[in-house]
Amino acid sequence: MAEINIQIINEEKTHTVVINGQLDESTVDEFAEKVYALIETIESNSKVIFDLEGLTYLNSKSLGYTTDFYNKIIAKESKLILAKPQANVKDEFNLIGLDQIIPFTQTLNEAKQM
């Protein structure tokens, strides 16, 4: 069973979700629940940053959730940014074409300045 550690850091209108571990069938719903709860609370013109440095793998359901998060965040006139993904994780996002709609950054600072 995979382990996941999710930490949410709220700084005014910037909300950073730090993800460590793997997102698979056993952890993805817990993760999604936390992110949906966060999206409920954000104001317009906010930024939701996923810090992916510690994420080693995500399954297809997580990819589907990410698309849904993006749609919900956009509906709230806010931004979703994916920061510091590992190469294999970036590959997955690229393959489903999410890199064409969601911005990726190499550092957290870059993400915060977007």
Binding site: Y57, L58, N59, K61, L63, N88, D91, E92, L95, I96
Partner: peptide, 16 residues
């Protein structure tokens, strides 16, 4: 060239 785990994830995504 891609890791088999990523390929399987893509099959799963496409299958869904």
């Amino acid at each position: 060239r891609l890791d088999q785990k990523i390929i399987d994830t893509m099959y799963e995504y496409m299958g869904y």
